[in-house]
Write a protein that binds this DNA or RNA. Sequence first.
DNA 1: CTTATATTTCGGTCATCAACGAAATGAAAT
DNA 2: ATTTCATTTCGTTGATGACCGAAATATAAG
Lengths: 114, 114
Amino acid sequence: MTESTNIFKALSDKNRLRILKMLQIKPLCVCEITDVLQLAASTVSQHLSILKKEGFILEDRDGKWVNYLINQRPGDQRVSAIMSQLDFWLGDSQLIESDKQKVKVVDRFKVCGI
Amino acid sequence: MTESTNIFKALSDKNRLRILKMLQIKPLCVCEITDVLQLAASTVSQHLSILKKEGFILEDRDGKWVNYLINQRPGDQRVSAIMSQLDFWLGDSQLIESDKQKVKVVDRFKVCGI
DNA sequence: CTTATATTTCGGTCATCAACGAAATGAAAT
DNA sequence: ATTTCATTTCGTTGATGACCGAAATATAAG
């Protein structure tokens, strides 16, 4: 009996919304996201697993890295609806802007393995 | 410093979604909602206050009753967007259908003051 | 094969939230 | 004014969730 998950619950966490916005810039690996959000890698991994389970993102292993990226063809129409207008749902905050800047310059060879 | 509330958080609770669906049938007072959801009146009151704060619903006092109803002109565009297609966001479950039936026959003069 | 790095899983802590009953408030009826 | 009923507010409890560090896993490099 697959309990139908509430799609809003996956989006009720601010850091998960931040991750979605970051991935709209470009695919990122866990440690890059960790560096921007300043959270433990295990925490970020948990958030990513929730977003993946709901169909918002996909993972793509590349050697020892796992890249996460926006799912361009989600099975759930509601997911497409939200992702196509994420700015509308989110509103642009100072924090999101700051994340964007960091994502643009983040370099996994510098921030990983610290 | 009005902390911008996450609109998804207000919708992340199943019982609050049930309430919104019920109010789409007709305005209801607290004890009617209490009767359908089978929750304590204080709990229902709390849910209603959250939905009201986010602009989903309005209250309209009528003597000793307080009727709650869908806000037809929400200030927040996201609220209108969700409410105009609530079925799309929610999906129709067995539980929601059952709530609808109960709402149609509920009578405040019978269920209140028990 | 061993080491190093990236990630996930696990176990635990702390904060948040839904739920309740009791007490307080609001509004009518007696 | 007092009682009655609907609702809200308050204080508490139990469940859920975000977070962390440590241990386990996966992959690449030496």
